[in-house]
């Protein structure tokens, strides 16, 4: 069971894009808009090896942040959130390992099956790594008003 508040879970279920921040070798934040997937406990993101710099950064520093900020890309939900967490990369077999989250991906982007059927046309795009993010802290704005202080919560490890 997750400790994340329901508002945040609904956002994670609905969001088609999240601003995902990683830290580069120079200690600077680098942010990518990516499709966040949520299995009820952890956040998953996949990264093609074509766009794998973020993977290099996570290998060096697994601390990441995931923000959902656009109501238009979150099923009209007004809430917004910023989740800090620890990332882990699964890359045993870039051809297949990531496919275990395909059912979650399919729910948000049904067209992925059609693209996957033509993976021969763009083979490197479908050689991917899977990023698993375990949430540690969250700040959220239930009414979406980011001019006000957010509500906050922390996972059991942090709270302890």
């Amino acid at each position: 069971m997750t400790w994340l508040p329901e508002d945040v879970q609904r956002l994670l279920d609905a969001a088609l894009v999240a601003e995902v921040a990683v830290i580069d070798g120079g200690g600077r934040p680098v942010v990518h808009p990516l499709l966040p997937l949520w299995d009820g406990e952890r956040i998953y993101i996949t990264s093609s090896i074509l766009f794998s710099k973020k993977l290099e950064h996570i290998r060096n520093n697994p601390r990441v942040s995931v923000t959902i900020s656009d109501p238009a890309a979150a099923g009209g939900l007004r809430a917004r959130c910023a989740i800090q967490g620890d990332a882990r990369i699964f890359e045993e077999d870039p051809h297949e390992t990531w496919e275990r989250i395909l059912p979650l991906w399919r729910e948000k982007e049904p067209a992925i099956d059609a693209f996957l059927g033509k993976r021969y046309a763009l083979p490197l795009f479908f050689e991917r790594s899977l990023i698993e993010i375990t949430p540690r802290r969250v700040a959220w704005w239930s009414d979406g008003d980011v001019g006000r202080a957010p509500a906050t919560a922390a996972g059991p490890e942090v709270a302890a």
Partner: peptide, 21 residues
Amino acid sequence: YPHVVVTWVGDDGYPAQTPAE
């Protein structure tokens, strides 16, 4: 764009983020 997201590295070493107008 209607809004931005500001990101910096917090004192705890994690990226910190907030949407902003």
